[in-house]
Design a protein around this nucleic acid. Structure first.
Length: 366
DNA sequence: GATAACTCTCTTAGTGAATC
DNA sequence: GATTCACTAAGAGAGTTATC
């Protein structure tokens, strides 16, 4: 079992109860390394357990190793799954995957989603494909697991959801059609152009006692020049649940995955433009009209039609394949939570969308 | 800048189960 | 019985951060 210690001692292995405890702590810490004190306390506790006391002393290093290995295994598994599925290039990265999960008990006491990009630990998250609306507070949370499902007489299927970063006591039955959907995507600086007036977004609302993610509609977008800090645009939003309005920065905005196609189109346009530029340069030297035609065709072919990668986002964390299939079917077919405006991305000037903040157009004065 | 401590990303190696 | 595979504990090396 495992690699034996180099000192020739007996092979060491954590018992199931220890693994369970460490897994719980790992989840509690949002897949980040617990503090040294926690590791030492665990090692001491395991050493003092009846099955080990007097026989084996569990070293802190061994606990530390376990956390490192488990975290690596989780990440490896996630990337493997994503690699198998046809995930679009615009799918979120690790940092984006970190939204909506508490950052550890010492950082967030209430069941609140951490603001996007806060804290180092945010890059450590497991990847969640779905989010669910809690009936308790009306906020959206990442789904860690679909534990069970049932069909009500009303014909509305429900799933028992374990929210990411929360325990069994927070599990909830939620309506699949209304309150489960593909996870919203935190916006990176260059993605502000995909947030347009009229859009439904998920917005981080900070109150006096709580801060949660709620649905909101974008009323207006004030574009600003990007600088070294990234996007400085401001968005006027109206929250759906209380009709309150607020001006928020991009970091508080999570766009719906249905807007992915805008970015894809935008990238395609940019590529086409750069390809056209290159071909023009080439043309200046030794161009033929045939090459121009080809470049034009390539540019046109690069315009990606709107495609939602629902099938690529199966809830890999769902308990059974059957449940996975059922949920993905319902969410993709019957989900009414996607009233995202279908404004075509071509309405956004390519100059505004230049990645890296090289914005040359500022639609609104500031 | 030097050093130590820590972290991350693999890699190595032993074990058990499944398969042939 | 040999082979393959998955799992798991531990090691290695490079990078990062904090301290002096």
């Amino acid at each position: 079992m495992g690699r034996p210690p180099s000192n020739g001692g007996p092979a060491f292995r954590f018992v199931q109860s220890e693994v369970t405890e460490m897994e719980a702590i790992l989840q509690q810490y949002n897949n980040t390394m617990p503090s040294r004190e926690v590791l030492m306390a665990l090692a001491d506790k395991f050493s003092e357990s009846p099955e080990r006391k007097g026989k084996i002393t569990v070293q802190m290093k061994q606990v530390w190793n376990w956390f490192q290995n488990r975290r690596y295994a989780i990440r490896a598994k996630s990337s493997k799954v994503l690699g198998k599925l046809d995930v679009s290039p615009m799918s979120r990265d690790d940092s984006a995957a970190a939204r909506n999960v508490p950052q550890g008990p010492q950082q967030i006491a209430a069941p609140i989603h951490a603001p996007p990009g806060s804290g180092k630990g945010v890059t450590e998250n497991a990847i969640h494909e779905f989010e669910a609306k809690s009936g308790r507070d009306g906020a959206w949370y990442d789904v860690a697991n679909f534990l069970a499902h049932r069909n009500l007489e009303t014909g509305n299927p429900e799933v028992l959801v374990r929210f990411a970063g929360f325990g069994p006591e927070e599990d909830e039955w939620v309506n699949v059609r209304k309150h489960v959907r593909q996870r919203s995507l935190p916006c990176e600086s260059s993605e502000c152009v995909a947030v347009l007036p009229g859009d439904l977004i998920l917005c981080f609302q900070e109150g006096k006692e709580q801060a949660l993610y709620f649905d909101a509609h974008v009323l207006d977008a004030q574009r600003r020049r990007h600088d070294v800090r990234g996007c400085r645009c401001r968005f006027l939003v109206r929250y759906v649940h209380d009709q309150s309005e607020e001006i928020v920065p991009l970091r508080k905005v999570c766009r719906r995955p249905e807007t992915d196609y805008r970015l894809q189109q935008l990238h395609a346009v940019n590529e086409a433009i750069s390809a056209e530029r290159k071909s023009m340069e080439h043309f200046m030297v030794s161009a033929t009209s045939g090459e121009m035609m080809q470049n034009q065709q390539n540019a046109e072919a690069a315009h990606v039609p709107p495609t939602f990668h629902v099938a690529a986002s199966l809830p890999t964390q769902a308990t059974t394949p059957e449940l996975r299939t059922e949920i993905s079917t319902v969410v993709s077919a019957g989900n009414s939570n996607a009233p995202v405006s279908s404004t075509v991305v071509t309405s956004v000037p390519a100059t505004v969308a230049a990645p890296g903040g090289s914005v040359s157009a500022v639609p609104k004065g500031n």
